[in-house]
Simulated scan of single mutants.
Amino acid sequence: MKQRMRFALLADEGEHTMTELCALFEISRQTGYEWLRRYRALGAAGLVDRPRGPHRHGRATPDAVVEAIVALRRERPTWGPRKLVAKLRARAPETPWPSASTVGEILKRADLVSGRRLHRHAPPRLEELTRPQRPNHVWCADHKGWVRLGDRERLEPLTVTDGFSRFLLVLGATASTRTEEAEPLFEQAFREHGLPDVIRTDNGAPFASSGATGLTTLGVRWIKLGIRHERIDPGQPQQNGGHERFHGTLLREAMTPPAADRAAQQARFDAFRHDYNHERPHEALGQTPPAHLFRPTPRPLPDRLPEPDYPPEAAVRKVRQAGEIKWDGSLVHITKALVGEPVAIEETHDGEWVVRYFDVPIGIIDRRTRKLRRRPVPRPGDRPAKTTDQVP
């Protein structure tokens, strides 16, 4: 640094030619002119050592590619590097797009990455639940936590996704968890896509009740349609983990901030649903949108609901207006969800009276208290072994 300063000061005095000064300091004329230029432009700071590496290495990502990545991230601020790469490759497969890790570094340099909180979850118990094997095998349903719309009205959206393809079947801007709001949305989904084999929900309204049977009006209709209702364990949302993660995406991309009113929020939901199904890459699907895997079910919604077909030796009782049946000289409360419906009573090897509706066991009549109690999780050998032909 001192040598460069001496050279620059002597050159500025003009008493020596550039050739003489360069020979004195044992440098090339090109270096001499460069030192002098930097000194005259920046003063002493211009003579400080500079990095010797190239301004741009040969493997740097082209500017046009970087600009496309940044532009898509600004368009989709909730998408991570993998989704961005998948979408860019779909748009321009001929372009050599960088890896997801390189895209992550590009986003960091562009200050487009924020820290993420880590969440700890209890280990899931998915072995007790049906694993989706094909589209429309298992539907997952829930209500997203409620928020206030711009007009201060309550919003508690109903969501239904296909467990296999992640296809978003229902996204309704409902105001509550009432059956009156949920049932028409399920009926519309059944008409559009057919009937699933299983619907998985939590234990809240309108899917389940606190009574011994756990049945609701919605659950009764699903039984009639041949749909098995599968409820996760209380307080274990991770058993419906894929659907819960979807709710996080929904909150970030279509509910923050909430719309001005319900109509505006539903319009926003409709646009989000199309984008989620047809445009947004899904990591669990190999970064393809859900619509690439989803197919309608071959089971259409029937025009008429079937009646239960119980064996002739079963004791059949119709549920009365108060939700009760007459059995063994006593009134046994079943559930108001089955008012007017026939149920069958069958006796097991252990002498228990099992009550079922269609082929679904809904409880056991306690011989001592004459009250219906919940049936434990079925084990091998628990199926009814004989029926009672007496009519108490």
Rank of each mutant, 00 (worst) to 15 (best):
I325D: 10
V66E: 10
P135G: 07
F7K: 06
H143P: 12
H143N: 09
R320Y: 07
R228L: 13
A68M: 02
D233H: 06
T19A: 15
R56H: 12
P206V: 00
R76F: 01
E313T: 14
G46Y: 06
G351F: 05
A254F: 00
D111H: 02
R37L: 10
G323T: 04
V147E: 03
A267G: 11
D270R: 00
A11R: 09
Q30W: 05
C22H: 03
R368V: 14
R166I: 03
C140Y: 08
E279H: 09
P123F: 11
E34P: 05
V377I: 07
R82H: 10
V316C: 09
S101K: 02
P157T: 00
E187C: 07
E34L: 14
R317F: 09
F246V: 06
T95E: 11
R383N: 13
K326G: 15
A41M: 13
G248C: 02
Q287W: 07
A64H: 08
A110K: 01
R356D: 11
D359G: 10
L112W: 00
R4D: 03
W222Q: 05
Y357P: 06
P300L: 01
G219N: 02
H137M: 12
R268L: 02
T161P: 04
L215S: 07
L10K: 12
T161F: 01
A254Y: 02
P98D: 05
L36Q: 12
H193D: 07
Q266A: 05
I223N: 01
V343C: 10
H119N: 03
M18F: 11
I232V: 09
T348G: 09
R152C: 09
S99T: 05
T288V: 08
L331P: 03
D151T: 12
A189H: 07
R228A: 13
V103N: 01
T130A: 15
R4T: 06
K326I: 13
R166G: 13
